Simulated scan of single mutants.
Amino acid sequence: MWFEPAFILAAIALVVGIVALFVAWSMWRQSQRKLEAMSRLMRELTRTRDSYRKQIEELQAASIGIGNKVGELYRQQDKLSEQHQELALKDPQGKLYSRATRMVQLGADIDEIMAECEMPRAEAELLITLHRQ
C-alpha cells in the first residue's frame, strides 16, 4: 500500500502543494512588509509636502507684505519729490544759497560769490566760514 503509484503521486502532490503554499505565504509576507514600508514612506512624504506647502504660503504672505510696503515707499518718495520741487520753485533765494555753497566748495573767492549770487559781503563771508571748515 505504501508503494503504490497512486499513493506516491498523492504524497508528492501533497509535498509540492505544501512547499508551494509555504513559498506563496513567504512571498505574501514579504509583500506585506514592503507595503508597510511604502506606507510609512508615503506618510513621511505627505508630512514633508505639507510642511513645504506651509512654508511657501508663509513666504507668499511675506512677499505680498513686502510688495505693499515697497509700493507705499514709492508713493511717499513721489510725494516727497513733488514737495521738494514745490519748495525749489517757491524759494529762489535757496537756489542762490545752494549755488553759493557749491562755489565755496569749489574754491571760489568772496568777490566771485558776491557777483555771481548777488549777495551782500556779510552773507558771502558767513557761507565761506561755514563751508570751508
Rank of each mutant, 00 (worst) to 15 (best):
W2C: 02
W2E: 14
F3H: 11
P5S: 08
F7K: 07
F7Y: 13
L9M: 04
L9G: 10
A10H: 05
A11N: 04
I12P: 00
I12G: 00
A13Q: 10
A13W: 08
L14P: 00
L14V: 07
L14G: 06
V15A: 12
V16Q: 04
V16S: 09
I18W: 06
I18M: 07
V19T: 11
L21E: 08
F22R: 06
F22I: 15
V23S: 13
A24H: 06
A24N: 07
W25G: 09
M27G: 15
W28L: 03
W28A: 10
R29S: 07
S31E: 12
R33T: 12
A37R: 10
S39F: 01
S39I: 06
R40Q: 13
L41M: 00
L41T: 00
M42G: 03
R43H: 05
R43K: 10
T46C: 01
T46I: 08
R47A: 15
T48E: 15
T48G: 05
T48P: 00
T48D: 14
T48R: 14
R49D: 09
D50V: 00
R53D: 06
R53Q: 15
Q55Y: 08
I56G: 02
E57V: 10
E58G: 02
L59P: 01
L59G: 00
A61F: 04
A62D: 13
I64L: 04
I64T: 04
G65Q: 14
I66H: 02
G67L: 07
N68F: 03
N68V: 08
K69F: 11
G71S: 15
E72S: 13
E72G: 01
E72R: 08
Y74W: 11
Y74K: 12
R75L: 12
R75E: 15
Q76A: 14
Q76I: 05
Q76L: 14
Q77T: 14
Q77I: 14
K79M: 05
K79E: 14
S81D: 15
S81W: 07
E82Y: 05
E82C: 01
E82T: 03
H84G: 05
H84E: 10
H84T: 13
Q85C: 02
E86I: 07
A88V: 10
D91E: 01
D91G: 00
P92D: 03
P92R: 04
Q93I: 09
G94E: 03
K95E: 12
K95G: 15
L96W: 05
Y97H: 06
S98F: 11
R99W: 01
A100K: 03
R102L: 10
M103C: 01
G107P: 02
A108L: 07
A108F: 12
D109F: 02
I110M: 05
A115M: 10
M119D: 08
R121D: 08
A122K: 03
E123Y: 02
E123T: 15
E123A: 08
A124S: 09
E125H: 05
L126G: 11
L127K: 03
I128S: 00
T129G: 11
T129S: 08
T129D: 13
L130Q: 12
L130C: 01
L130N: 10
R132N: 11
Q133E: 12
Q133R: 14
Q133W: 00
